[in-house]
Amino acid sequence: MTDRQDPGEILSAPLIIEYPFKRTTGPVIGAFLTGLRERVLVGSRAEDGRVLVPPAEFDPVSGEDLTELVEVGPQGVITTWAWVTQPHAKHPLDEPFAWVLVKLDGADTPMLGALAAPGIEAVSTGARVEPVWADEREGHIDDIAHWTLVDPEGGRA
């Protein structure tokens, strides 16, 4: 009989799981991504009249198809946020930043984004933000490079 080994004797090796998934969008999510490429934000109108962003292909309550897409934003308000002191290499920003849920003007549900801000004290629920568009856009959520605060007078903070 052999004894169990110490962890140090166990063989280990890197395992990398990587794939460039190609996802078909369908017409509704496709329209959302088309909008990002064109620097336009769109949501879908739910059965109860709410505007959902990102648009849903289907009503989140009843499950029925949603087909009406409407333009929203581009500015909105933070509904909740979290401050990341040490960004992960995979995060959208390299410097400390805030995750935010942003309710765009004309929308009823908020969407997730990464907000560049000078520090945690600059961020608050209710603050106005707007997207900073990537220079090269291809119809991808990353076409919004990140979000930025808008000062109360309407210019950038």
Partner: peptide, 24 residues
């Protein structure tokens, strides 16, 4: 699908690449 005016005359996105790598 009913599109807003701003998206009616542009080429629609039909697919998107979302590469992902996980290191174990």
């Amino acid at each position: 699908i009913q599109l807003p005016a701003s998206l009616r005359d542009v080429e629609p996105v039909r697919s998107v690449r979302t590469p992902a790598q996980l290191d174990y």
